[in-house]
Design a protein around this nucleic acid. Structure first.
Lengths: 225, 225
DNA sequence: CGACGACTTGACGTGTTTCAAACGAGGTGG
DNA sequence: CCACCTCGTTTGAAACACGTCAAGTCGTCG
């Protein structure tokens, strides 16, 4: 993980992430961690790398993925501003993490974080919430990857992204069609076709490839099943 | 969750579950929790139910699933003896849990468990390990559900089950073809066809429908990709 | 302006689903 | 003990959604 060469100041503004209360974990990482700036496609860690840190996205987006020997790739999650990632059961990362777009992240050493959590109950609770939220998100994603049509997958994806970006009717996708395809278990062609089909049904509007207006949420909800 | 009517004695033998060390979480649930016996297909909790407990499988198997309005079902995980499940980010269960076969489980109230964990660092650590292990398993499952062929899915499933049952070359599936299909994102027909095809390739042997001998692990490994 | 990367569109092939029927084991009742 | 049912599983034939291969378009950057 050579990207660590570019570590910056150990400070970051805090954005609340989870639930209604303050995000103690985000706050802690922000205050006690190191900040770094990454450019598009920079690797944060690779599969098999030692899991030394826990990360928090300050701005931009990060993808967690695994590639098979034959090149197929599955993206396990996209992490946006406020999300914390890098939780591992062992000493190694089981997926790799890369910057989807230029982004800023903050990281904190696992031992340091665990030591802090041992003394700070609220931090421990926040850590727990982030981890279980990650688990819940993974479960939801599994349901999406199961036997669902391309239309369902794409519609659900768009609604999810809109909700995460603040529920406006105009979303800005940080990721390529390739990323979306690998996230949904489809090919780029199918993703593209599905989007144009959604547009012809008047459910969305594609101004630029990565700028999408949700024109009819009701229709999208119905298609998302 | 009416099944709670059948709570038994607050004791269970301890089987180690994770990593090399003792499984403090399993131990704690076993000692401080209530034990219950469930018969095949009994519901442990439903989607939307209050998440009051954390569960541990003593014997048998449990499935975690979500059903869509149109009846399609996705199984998120099978939990076997030693596994702990029921971790949730909020106050509600996001999936339902049912007994795949007759089984015994132990449960402990979340507040009680968290209180214990706050005072017992080793327990907190064990709790953390189980949760992250669950997350890792979910991630692996996502990779399996992504764009993989039926053969890859089934071969991987068989190898995984063998590993979890103790890596013998003869596995005993507690679940129906229906469960397997919904776990892998396939139909029962495809699962069945794939199994007979694996048998004709001499990779496995189907003595009874749920008794499978792994005849050629090398071949299975190759097919699992 | 030209070249490159990202995206879209088209025609065709195929793996998986769908619909349908048959099979087998286990259980019940005559 | 055999006939008969049921449930889970297997097998077959046909339809279809998505993948594959290939070409074309669009926007961006040098």
């Amino acid at each position: 993980m050579n990207a660590f060469a570019r570590i910056e100041t150990p400070y970051t503004p805090v954005t609340p992430a989870i639930g209604r209360g303050a995000d103690r974990l985000g706050e802690t990482i922000g205050l006690a961690g190191a900040r770094m700036r990454l450019e598009r496609n920079a690797e944060i860690y690779g599969e098999g790398d030692a899991a030394e840190f826990v990360y928090r996205v300050v701005s931009g987006a990060v993808r967690i993925s695994r590639v098979l020997i034959d090149g197929r790739r599955q993206i396990g999650a996209f992490h946006l501003a406020g999300d914390v990632f890098g939780f591992e059961p062992g000493e190694e990362h089981r997926f790799s993490a890369e910057a989807v777009s230029d982004c800023e992240i903050v990281l904190i050493g696992r031992p340091a974080l665990l030591a802090l959590a041992a003394r700070d109950g609220e931090l421990a609770r926040s850590l727990w919430e982030h981890a279980t939220a990650d688990l819940a998100r993974a479960h939801d994603h599994m349901v999406l990857l199961g036997r669902r049509s391309a239309t369902e997958k794409v519609a659900t994806f768009l609604l999810d992204m809109a909700a995460r970006e603040g529920s406006r009717d105009r979303i800005e996708l940080p990721m390529s069609r390739y990323d979306i395809a690998d996230y949904l278990g489809l090919t780029i062609e199918t993703v593209s076709r599905t989007l144009t089909q959604l547009e012809s049904r008047r459910a969305i509007e594609l101004t630029e490839a990565r700028r999408i207006a949700l024109r009819d949420r009701g229709a999208l909800d119905r298609l998302a099943a």
